[in-house]
Amino acid sequence: MSFINMANPWPLVPLPLYSDKVHLVPLALEHAVDLKLALEENDLWNFWLTPIPTVSSLEKEIKRRLSLQNEGKMFPYSVYDVLKNRYVGMTTLMELDRDNQRLEIGYTWYSKSSQKTIINTQAKYLLLEYAFSELNVIAVEFRTHFFNHASRRAIERLGAKLDGVLRNHRITLDDEGNRILRDTCVYSIIQSEWPTVKQHLRYKLNNYVY
């Protein structure tokens, strides 16, 4: 069993996180109806650089994440767009390392219409604020495929810095089912950087042009 810092114990289940634009709601099977509609926008699962569930595999993926939650390894969320009044994606706090007060933000995807909008910035702000201010982590990691340049730019715009590249990090499959090797870029924001990154994100959110 992982050691829990009793001076700042982590909850055993994810807590809801709210802003006026975005609600991060603990993942549940009943969110599947909205999430399937989100997936159907532009066949998101065909994007080979990141694992995104298909409409048919979504409920299995939800159950997988909930199972990891029950094991204390993940806090999975559905992303609720207040303006659209529906769920538009999923994200997680994962690799929960209570011993070392670290975690990773990942397994994130959004509907096509929600990409390159305020949704991702607001969701990441909520997760980072919760991680640093409530869980008192010393670092938050982000990982992405070396060739996923859009994801890398988005992570860098948040204020995360590149720690390095894990070469031959994973074995994946190409669109013909052949095994290929993935290089993974590892980024992080550390505790001492959070006040400046927080101000940067607040400025972006307050000055977002709709």
Score class of each variant (00 low, 15 high):
K198L: 00
S2E: 11
V137T: 09
L173M: 12
Y130Q: 06
K161M: 05
L17C: 11
A150C: 09
V88Y: 00
F147I: 12
Y187S: 04
A154W: 01
K124S: 01
L103V: 02
L12Q: 15
R102W: 07
K116L: 08
L12I: 14
L162K: 10
Q199T: 10
H23F: 14
M90R: 04
D43Y: 09
T117C: 01
L35E: 07
T50N: 08
F147K: 14
E61G: 00
G89V: 00
L39R: 08
L205D: 01
E134P: 06
R143L: 13
L17F: 09
H200K: 15
L58D: 01
N70I: 06
S57Q: 07
N85P: 00
G106W: 05
Y80W: 10
Y80E: 05
Y203D: 15
I180S: 01
A131N: 06
E71K: 11
E30F: 13
L24H: 05
T50I: 14
M90F: 03
P195G: 02
L158M: 05
L126S: 02
K198C: 14
G164W: 06
Q69W: 08
L135H: 12
P53W: 00
P26F: 12
R86T: 09
S192F: 07
S67P: 07
T196G: 06
L205T: 01
F142N: 12
A32Y: 03
T92S: 15
T117N: 02
A32W: 00
S19H: 06
S192N: 08
W10N: 13
S111N: 03
S78D: 08
